[in-house]
């Protein structure tokens, strides 16, 4: 349990892959959640068009996008079983609530797509889908924030602490709540930018562009608030975020991406806006990972402390290697069929 800078080892490689999958989850499934947010806030004369644009964008791909989260969990419990066991105990409550959100989001979306298009049932499924899309990212952010802030150290859970001290207080901190809101703002921003890029209709492009600009401001504000709270609640993160060249580099990169994104939206450079938004989210995520490194469960255990046997790590990484060879072309194929053509997707053409 020594905090000196370790060499890059097998467990670090696995942890890196986990951040990568989380990154993919944020960029892909995050935008699906964000779509739900804009479904909830669909306003104006083109309300229904906005909603069906969102449904078209989510429909064929949300299940594939969702598997990234499963991958993160499987990697965590295969390669860092003690961390999985501890975190799922200490964060039992927010994880359970998040699962409820995931279940309701996925099933309500599907039920809405396949139920009759015109009645009140539609609206009810839609409401469940939209509300679950707002709540779930917040809970995801809360869990990540609680871990990052070092509020759930790996210590034995015995009778000396009360229920609230063990199971509630670690994640109800201003810092983890602000990470939750940041996640929500980020997901909404990603969705708005993607939609503005994807839709061919000028009016819809305009609607989503306005939403993208508003949410860009929200991301900036919640990001700032998070850093302020980090000072009190998450000293480790704060230190990581404020010290050293890498930290400054990360901030600069994130800020540049953010500003580029706003400029591109302003000038209607759609593709550039998408790239900038994705880059901004990516930098944020890796900034967090970097500030937490080499801890897996700060401030008590590092990545190497908690690693499963070497052979497990090797096998899991080999499986992932083989998987990449099969899945990468498959993903490209999926997105080639459904995305980036700028055509109107007929929902459920069939």
């Amino acid at each position: 349990m020594s905090p000196e800078m370790p060499l890059i080892t097998l467990p670090h490689a696995v942890a890196g892959v986990m951040v990568l999958s989380l990154n993919a989850y944020v960029l892909l499934a995050g935008a699906d959640f964000g779509g739900g947010v804009w479904d909830l806030f669909a306003r104006g004369p083109r309300r229904d068009e906005q909603r069906s644009a969102i449904a078209d964008a989510i429909g064929p791909i949300w299940e594939a996008n969702h598997v990234w989260l499963i991958l993160v969990v499987v990697l965590l419990f295969s390669c860092f079983p003690r961390a999985f066991s501890h975190l799922s105990t200490a964060l039992h409550i927010p994880i359970t609530l998040m699962l409820v959100g995931i279940v309701l989001r996925g099933s309500a979306f599907t039920f809405r797509s396949y139920d009759r298009q015109t009645d009140a049932v539609q609206r009810n499924w839609g409401r469940v889908f939209a509300i679950a899309s707002v709540v779930t990212p917040v809970l995801l952010g809360i869990c990540l924030g609680a871990v990052a802030s070092g509020a759930v150290p790996l210590v034995p859970i015995d009778g000396t602490r009360t229920f609230t001290e063990v199971y509630v207080r670690p994640w109800i901190t201003p810092f983890s709540l602000s990470v939750g809101v940041l996640a929500l703002a980020l997901f909404a921003h990603l969705a708005a930018v993607y939609l503005a890029w994807e839709r061919p209709e000028p009016e819809l492009k305009q609607d989503f562009r306005a939403r993208a600009l508003v949410s860009a401001i929200a991301v900036f504000m919640t990001g700032t608030i998070t850093i302020v709270f980090a000072r009190a609640d998450a000293p480790l993160v704060y230190e990581g975020l404020t010290r050293g060249f890498t930290a400054i580099g990360m901030h600069t990169a994130t800020a540049c991406a953010g500003l580029t994104g706003v400029w591109a939206l302003w000038r209607r450079r759609w593709l550039l806006a998408v790239l900038a938004a994705a880059a901004q989210a990516t930098f944020l995520l890796w900034g967090w990972a970097w500030s937490q490194f080499p801890w897996l469960v700060p401030p008590s255990h590092t990545i190497t402390d908690l690693a499963a046997p070497r052979i497990t790590q090797q096998l899991v990484l080999s499986v992932l290697g083989v998987g990449t060879v099969i899945l990468l072309p498959s993903f490209v194929y999926l997105f080639r069929i459904f995305k980036g053509r700028g055509t109107v997707f007929k929902q459920l053409d069939g």
């Binding site: 390669c79 079983p81 999985f84 899991v316």
Partner: peptide, 10 residues
């Protein structure tokens, strides 16, 4: 899971 995770993770 703490004991089994590393064994049946594959």
């Amino acid at each position: 899971m703490e004991h089994a995770g590393g064994i049946i993770g594959m």
